[in-house]
Amino acid sequence: MKLDKLGRKNLPWVYLFILPSVVVFLTFYLLPIVTVFVTSLTRWDGYNPPTFQGFRNYSLLLSRSVFLISLRNLLWWSLIAGTLHVGFGVLVAFLFSRRPVGWKAVRTVYMIPNVISGAAWAMIYRFIFNNDFGLLNGMIRVFAPGFNVKWLFQSPYAFWAVTLTWLFYAVIITLIVHADLMSIPAELHEAAHIDGATGLQIAWRIDLPLCRFSIGTSVILSITSRIAMYEAVALTTRGGPGDDTMNIPIILVNAITDMNYGYANAAAVSMFVLGIVTLVLVNWLFRMNRRVY
């Protein structure tokens, strides 16, 4: 690499400056990730040195119904996230782009659920779904007195109750897609108008395809957040009733608590793999490797 004068003279300083970031990267990213992958192939309790046992943790994982249920839940949640959740965020972004009265206020308020703690949000929903004093049953009882459902603790409602804690909160998607919509040249819309296209046709045939990147990114973001969803389950249903709302992070934390580190890390690797599969699949589905303009 060619070094400029300033750069060559300062090279020791440059490396000294980047050193802290490199140390953080090595200690908190590279080393942990390597540890996770390597020790997922071992039996390890944290005290005794890990002993290699091949893919036993993985076959164990796949043989347990709690993991299979987690995968099934993840599949459903990902489908809902990739369609309804992203769809809602995109819809709101399109409505914002028409600048209706008060859209900025709505945008500001829409952000609130995302700036408060995920733990607190889970609590709020635990209260909303509470059978005694919850907001939801309070509303239902206005029309049907005597109504009683423990949303978070009864099958099959628990799965849908957990889903509702995130389903409509798609503000990040709205902001990304809205930024993308704003960058579409106005001439395109004018040309389409002159050719006699209706608003819906313009949205469907021009805007949506042109926002492919931000929508694809949104799908990836929303599915990976489902893979890593912890508070919304741990602080509401803890995976129950039965294993109805189980997911992989819960399995991971339980395994750490049980000092079953190899098994925990196999679960962590499965999260990695699922994330990468999502990335590749969505990239291909949305043709994100091709240019838009």
Partner: peptide, 22 residues
């Protein structure tokens, strides 16, 4: 490398970081 860390779900590093802190 620094920006790729965005793709690492924080939960997956739970055990190594737990052990490191111990």
């Amino acid at each position: 490398l620094f920006t790729l860390t965005l793709l690492v779900p924080p939960h997956t590093k739970a055990q190594p970081i737990f052990s490191l802190i111990l």
